[in-house]
Amino acid sequence: MDDSTLSDRLRQLGLSEKEVDTYLTILEHGEAKASTVADDAGVSKRYVYSVSEKLDERGFVDVIDHAVPTTIRANPPDEVIAALTTDLESLEPELKNRYGNVSEQEREFEVIKTRTTIMKRITQLLERAEEEVTLSVPATLLDEIEDALETTVDRGVMVILLVTGDDSLPESRFSGLASIARSWGENAPLIVTADQHLGLFAPNEMLVRSNSGKQGIAISQAQLVPIIVGSFFGNYWPMAEQVYVTEPDVLPRTYTDFRHSVLQSTLHLEAGHDVIVRAEARPVRTDEYATIEGQLVGVRQSLLEPTRDTFAVENALILELESEDDEEAIVTVGGKGAFVEDYEANSVTLERV
């Protein structure tokens, strides 16, 4: 840290420019007479006495006035830092009491300037997720968020993880941390979304290099976060190599996150299981929901290799329905906002035959 930066940091603690110069002079001497400090700092001897009393009250120095002449001794820096830290920590309870009730995640937009805040927001999004998380993170961050990822998976949340900047991590590294994981040797932005309405975006440089000058943004808006999810699946996910896939869930199970039902349907089909699907759904462009039931005969998806989508980010279940006159009909079911499929589903239940 250069002299200018050091002076700026000390001024942030409430010291004036002359007080900073006087303190640094005392610090360099370790202990000195007031006249010596005055000469070196370019201030009057009376000013040194006045400033020294203030610095003494704050714990920066110790004024030894029981001897003649009076001397001023700099306190050890580790003691000064410890005292300042204690003072700041003592403010926390009162600041929290006065802090407004609106949580930071509920703000529609938040500009983030530090890596520390980015890491805090990642953990918060993982803790708040109830259904689905998508993440694109540098491999260097994996250790820091490992516990939060494991807890999220344990809650039954689907975690779709893309690790960038290192494509050499073994499959075992992802066990318990994701539902499905891919790795890519290239660098990519940090992208984190939770349940389609909370999002976080930051340049890669902000995470791997200190003082990059870059900024991130947190978003809490249901209209925008799906766009981030679409960018994740459309631009970055296809570039990476699949390295880990979880085991199929024990059925029956109901999914309110449609993408999760598609993932599990794919896993069960690949395992050779016969699966019945019951969906609370409505024909697209209509308003009346009903329960439809049929045999799962296929999926269209881009989550797992080999992909079976007909366009980017497609997710659909293909069912064989049995009508009242015993005729079979093949229909497609999509998630919320579906328009190219036959049905739009609110929830999906999978059950082994």
Rank of each mutant, 00 (worst) to 15 (best):
S4F: 09
R11P: 03
L15F: 15
K18C: 00
V20H: 11
T22G: 02
Y23I: 03
L27M: 12
E28A: 13
A32D: 05
A34E: 02
S35C: 02
V37F: 09
V37N: 09
A38H: 13
D40M: 07
G42M: 02
S44E: 08
S44T: 15
K45T: 14
L55S: 04
E57F: 12
R58K: 13
R58N: 07
V61C: 04
A67N: 02
V68Q: 09
V68H: 10
P69C: 12
P69I: 09
T70F: 01
T71A: 03
I72H: 03
I72R: 08
I72M: 07
R73L: 03
R73P: 00
N75V: 14
N75E: 13
T85G: 02
T86H: 06
L88P: 02
E89Q: 15
L91Y: 09
L95M: 10
R98H: 12
R98Q: 12
N101M: 04
S103K: 08
E104H: 00
E110W: 00
K113T: 14
R115L: 03
I118V: 15
M119Y: 10
M119R: 07
L126M: 07
S136F: 02
P138G: 11
T140D: 08
L142I: 12
L142Q: 02
I145L: 04
A148N: 06
A148M: 02
E150G: 11
D154Y: 01
V159L: 03
V159S: 05
I160V: 15
L161W: 12
L162Y: 11
T164Q: 03
D167I: 05
D167L: 06
L169G: 00
P170W: 10
S172F: 04
F174H: 11
S175C: 03
L177G: 03
S179A: 11
I180K: 01
I180V: 15
G185C: 05
N187C: 01
I191K: 01
Q196D: 07
L198F: 09
F201L: 15
P203S: 08
N204D: 08
N204Y: 15
M206C: 01
V208W: 00
N211S: 12
S212P: 07
S212A: 14
G213A: 08
Q215M: 09
I217P: 00
Q221H: 13
L224D: 10
G230K: 12
F233L: 12
P238L: 06
P238N: 08
V245F: 03
T246N: 11
E247D: 15
V250M: 11
L251M: 05
P252C: 05
R253L: 14
R253G: 01
T254H: 00
R259G: 02
R259T: 15
S261T: 06
Q264M: 08
L269H: 04
I276M: 13
V277A: 06
R278L: 03
E280S: 08
V284A: 05
D287P: 00
A290V: 09
V297N: 05
Q301Y: 07
L304H: 04
L304E: 01
P306L: 10
P306T: 10
T307I: 06
T307A: 11
L317Q: 12
L319K: 03
E324K: 13
E324I: 11
D326G: 05
D326I: 02
D326S: 15
E327V: 07
A329I: 13
I330N: 05
G337W: 08
A338V: 07
Y343T: 04
E344N: 07
L350D: 01
V353F: 13
V353I: 09
